[in-house]
Design a protein around this nucleic acid. Structure first.
Length: 568
RNA sequence: UGGGGAGUAGCCAAGUGGUAAGGCAGCAGGUUUUGAUCCUGCGUAUCGAGGGUUCGAAUCCUUCCUCCCCAACCA
């Protein structure tokens, strides 16, 4: 019943699709496409992940393949079950089903065996260098590294030491297992990278079964290969790791561990959005310092924040589609995201009238007792959505923004002496303004033209302005929350790394209003979205209780009046 | 002073030797009982810069410039 959100006219393939099609054409993987989305469960998913999710799942879908959800849980000190739950929920919400749900931690035994194999092949060794020493021996960008004095231990010694590392004979940090590659390599990642570290930490899945944990570089490719992933799509910062990714898999010289052909890593540029920060570190900090109300605060760029704000999965997916996939660092304009949600909601959100900042309007030539109902469609283009009945009476609320005591040029809303249409109801003319002792306008006294019931005058006179209204006697009270962009900076890169990066936070990022709503909204359910005519799209807060409606503004309607006014 | 990437309009992004798609934003009109939506039109893009090859270059060669990533027992 709800209209389809139009897909962008996508035309040419992006570079990843070209790779997939080439592999498909050459039957490299026997016509198979298998991708994976591999988050570390150390935070909530954000819009940047949504891009990755859409790419991984979308590509597999497009080419008849499948996608696994894999939790890259190799660092127990940062990870938590709370995060895996939220990630599962968010991926589902976005509308994707994963073929298999895996955990890097499920592969700990396999990883361990493969590590022993590498030791046996003379490709890995136990190193006793300390944290600082490793760093020192590694050299830097300009100077090659030095080989560890432990690099040439015998296979037997390495195996013995590694087994004892696992058995817990050595303290945390005292030894590591390292890949024996090349300390001279200009690629720092290849200077004998760590494969395992000793860490006595409780893992959210394996508990205390392991005292040694594999590093990302070792675990990731192996996990991909085990799941027979064909294309391992990740972000640009892993480009330097690709040789290492390949190295670890290629050491399976006898082909005893992995199915061929091996997966291929492909990198794309991660998403950045104007007016927001995306790093997990910062998002976590916002939550921990109570700068926001939680991971799902509607100002957060998290998936759950967007959901709570009233975004639809369709709009998020459309956004991911619109931003494109390439390899250059990019900062997408948040206006594009807003365009996507507006377009989606415009097509499907029921309309309702709401007055955010109430101003009383009294119709002096209408009796206090009189009441009638007007009937308006829920959606102008979808009669199948039905209609709503809205009571009209002599005392109404209109929005303060719809009245100007001194009307600028081209203003065609209400002003002294001006006539305007109350949407769907009738024409009213402002005859008198009532002010309080401070000079603030508190009431408008108007006359209406009873002949204009329905909104048009029989004499055909034109009124350009149409405003929305709510009958005071029948109005519903609601709390409406206006969320603005959290950050002042246009570019997330402008937000300083220093401790005072919070200065980028917009103090006006949340405004709470007591609003008046048309009574038909009484039955609105949490999560439902509406277009409050002439103002914007709003969603009933997920925590909203019946009888105490709380709305979050998803996004405002575009209002060209401000532009007209700005031009004078 | 190393290595790896990337530079096409304000923001994204096609294009891979034949004379610069599309979207967002912006501008100008039209329709409209939401100044919304919708519709129409609008961009002289030194294709980072210089040099070269070619009948012809955003695309090839070359030099240079700029930006991003890499020196966690993070991912």
């Amino acid at each position: 019943m709800t209209p389809e959100f139009p897909a962008p006219e996508t035309r040419s393939l992006h570079f990843i699709e070209e790779i997939l099609e080439a592999d498909l054409a050459s039957q490299k993987h026997g016509g198979r496409v298998m991708t994976r989305f591999p988050p570390e469960p150390n935070g909530y998913l954000h819009i940047g992940h949504a891009k990755s999710i859409c790419i991984n799942f979308g590509l597999a879908q497009k080419y008849g393949g499948k996608t696994n959800l894999r939790f890259d849980d190799t660092n127990p000190t940062k990870e938590d079950i709370e995060y895996v739950d939220s990630i599962r929920e968010d991926v589902h919400w976005l509308g994707f089903e994963w073929a298999g749900e895996h955990y890097a931690s499920d592969y700990f035994p396999f990883l361990y065996d493969y590590a022993e194999y590498l030791i046996g092949q003379g490709k890995a060794y136990v190193c006793d260098l300390s944290d600082e020493e490793i760093k020192e021996y590694r050299g830097n960008f300009y100077n090659p590294g030095k080989e560890s004095p432990y690099r040439n231990r015998t296979v037997e010694e390495n195996l013995d030491l590694f087994r004892r590392m696992r058995a817990g004979e050595f303290p945390d940090g005292s030894r590591t297992l390292r890949a024996k590659i090349d300390m001279q390599s200009p690629n720092m990642n290849l200077r004998d990278p760590l494969m395992y570290r000793i860490k006595r930490a409780h893992h959210h899945r394996t508990g205390d079964a392991w005292l040694i944990y594999p590093m990302y570089d070792f675990a990731h490719g192996v996990s991909d290969a085990l799941e027979t992933i064909t294309h391992s799509i990740c972000t640009l910062e892993f480009e330097d790791h690709r040789p290492l990714y390949e190295w670890f898999l290629e050491q399976d010289v006898e082909g005893k561990f992995f199915q061929r052909p091996l997966p291929r890593q492909i990198e794309f540029a991660r998403l950045n959005l104007t007016h927001t920060v995306m790093s997990k570190r910062r998002l976590l900090q916002l939550v921990q310092e109570n700068q926001v109300q939680g991971w799902d605060d509607p100002r957060m760029p998290t998936i759950c924040g967007l959901r709570r704000r009233g975004y639809t999965p369709e709009a998020v997916r459309a956004f991911a589609e619109h931003v494109g996939v390439a390899k250059r660092d990019m900062v997408a304009d948040v206006e594009l995201l807003e365009h996507c949600i507006r377009q989606d909601l415009e097509a499907r959100a029921p309309r309702a009238m709401a007055v955010l900042r109430p101003l009383k309007l009294v119709i002096t030539n209408m009796s206090e007792a009189e009441t009638f109902e007007v009937e308006l469609p829920r959606h102008p283009e979808h009669p199948e959505l039905g209609t709503r009945r809205i009571p009209f009476s002599h005392e109404l609320w209109i929005d303060q923004d719809d009245f100007r005591e001194e009307a600028p040029k081209k203003w065609f809303r209400l002003a002294p002496g001006a006539e305007v249409r109350l949407r769907g109801a009738a024409l009213v003319r402002c005859e008198e303004i009532v002010k309080d002792s401070t000079g603030a306008v508190v009431e408008l006294r108007c006359t209406w033209d009873p002949a204009s019931k329905g909104g048009n005058a029989p004499d055909g006179r034109k009124v350009k302005g149409t405003i929305h209204w709510v009958s005071a006697r029948h109005a519903l009270d609601a709390e409406v929350r206006l969320y603005e962009q959290l950050f002042l900076a246009d570019d997330p890169m402008d937000v300083p790394e220093s401790q005072d990066w919070h200065q980028g936070i917009n103090p006006q990022s949340l405004e709470i209003l007591r609003a008046k709503l048309e009574p038909s909204l009484a039955s609105a359910q949490p999560g439902e979205r509406f277009q409050f005519e002439r103002t914007g799209y709003f969603a009933v807060d997920l925590d909203s209780k019946p009888g105490a409606l709380v709305f979050n503004r998803t996004v405002g309607l575009k209002d060209s009046w401000s532009k007209i006014e700005a031009k004078g």
